[in-house]
């Protein structure tokens, strides 16, 4: 029973983790929380659905429409995530860069991103309605069983294939991203810009280009996360990303703002704790995530893996 809950928690926790990575990437470079990230996450799920050539429902401007072609799930996931990434770059260009150029207060940028999130959610609803969509069963791994029992017949630990896929993809993203940031020249430049953009430009780094790249990565990872959730529980409507947006915020504050390992640990922790909530208390599940956050912040204001807020000079 416990093993079963842990497995469930690990699956949802990995989505929290890669969702929160999108926040973390942008926060570490620009010091802002991009609330539009939840909306990009939602878009990613819809992009994949669209690219698979699946038909929309009865409401919205695109009612009953579908693409003349359909891509296999994994290709659609990848292309959809790239489009989500490019969409992030687009938002950076039209909203965040002009604000930055004017030296806008971070709070203003925050509110702008919140407005973007609302606008995107409404546009989605306008286009395809508020209906629930889901990818065809077995879309990801045709022919694979719907679930696998890792326990015994007496004590089953049943993990659904969708959950296994989520965990595998999340681990893959983490490994690739960690390698990229710690071991490549561009990753090193990203770390430099995140510490001191002015000095970075004196080293010949084009900071605007790296900020674009960061928005792309953030949108890409967000798009993947959205599709994974769509695969697991379906696309429950344009508001899919909103609850993740808040949960993701709890995750990065819990893990430590701007810390990539922090986002992972925070995500897994919240996912597992939520999964351990007994069925009778399930309506308090979300409150629990924020209660943990509250307690941790009382003891460790910088989060689990964050740097102390006051740095030695």
């Amino acid at each position: 029973m416990l093993a079963q809950q842990l497995a469930n928690g690990l699956a949802i926790g990995s989505v929290y983790a890669i969702f929160a990575l999108g926040y973390t990437l942008i926060f570490s470079i620009l010091g802002i929380i991009n609330f539009a990230h939840g909306a990009i996450f939602t878009l990613g799920a819809y992009f994949t659905y669209t690219l698979m050539g699946l038909q929309f429902g009865f409401n919205g401007l695109l009612a009953q429409q579908k693409l003349p072609f359909g891509l296999p799930f994994w290709v659609a996931l990848l292309v959809g995530a790239v489009i989500a990434g490019l969409f992030g770059v687009f938002l950076e260009r039209i909203i965040f860069r002009p604000l930055r150029a004017r030296g806008a207060d971070p709070l203003l940028t925050l509110v702008a991103s919140l407005g973007l999130a609302v606008a995107i959610v409404n546009i989605i609803q306008y286009l395809v309605g508020a209906e629930t969509y889901s990818y065809p069963s077995g879309a990801a791994l045709p022919g694979a069983p719907a679930s696998v029992n890792f326990g015994t017949t007496e004590a089953p630990v049943i993990i659904r294939t969708a959950q296994l896929i989520i965990i595998a993809v999340a681990v893959l993203i983490l490994i690739v991203l960690t390698f990229f940031i710690n071991r490549t020249k561009t990753g090193r430049a990203l770390r430099a810009v995140s510490e001191d953009a002015t000095t970075s430009s004196l080293l010949g780094i084009n900071t605007n280009q790296l900020i674009r790249l960061t928005f792309f990565l953030s949108g890409f990872v967000g798009g993947v996360a959205g599709t994974l959730v769509g695969l697991n529980v379906g696309i429950t409507g344009p508001y899919l990303g909103i609850s993740f947006g808040l949960k993701g915020l709890a995750v990065i504050v819990l893990g430590g703002l701007g810390s990539i390992p922090g986002a992972v640990v925070g995500g897994l922790l919240i996912g597992i704790v939520e999964a351990l909530v007994p069925a009778s208390l399930v309506s308090y599940r979300d409150a629990l995530a924020f209660a943990i956050l509250f307690i941790v912040l009382l003891v460790r204001p910088q989060g689990l893996l964050g740097r102390p807020l006051i740095q030695k000079v």
Partner: peptide, 12 residues
């Protein structure tokens, strides 16, 4: 860049 190693600073 205080949070990067000496070598990373030089390579940058």
């Amino acid at each position: 860049l205080a949070r990067l190693t000496v070598e990373d600073n030089l390579r940058l």
